[in-house]
Amino acid sequence: METTEYLDCEIARTTEDGDRWFQRVRLPRKSGMTIQEVLRHVADEVDGTFAFFEHSCKRGFCGSCLVTANGRKVLSCRTLVPPGPGPLRIEPALKTSKDFWPAAD
């Protein structure tokens, strides 16, 4: 599949009442971009209301970055975004308090 210059994403968000909706975001594809970077990009460059907290060992073993991408559970720090224009749908796989912010236990 040909690699495009951009990637369309559907990012799971939660309303104040805890309902889920999907935010559509088109972002520039960077070489070697991981799924975690998509979330970081949305948090840092696109939308200041997006709740996202990364700890992450960045080494693919701590498990804190687990998400569901196009229906499959993956460690987002060690999973590249798929080729093609998308859409790439990203949802939390762990318990969260809002958007992708982890729930404190």
């Binding site: 948090a43 200041g48 209301t49 997006f50 709740a51 996202f52 907290f53 308090s97 809002k98 958007d99």
Partner: peptide, 14 residues
């Protein structure tokens, strides 16, 4: 400044 004025879950504040 944070981009959003909401004090909760505000990444910019952290």
């Amino acid at each position: 400044a944070a981009r959003t004025p909401s004090p909760a879950h505000n990444r910019d504040i952290a």
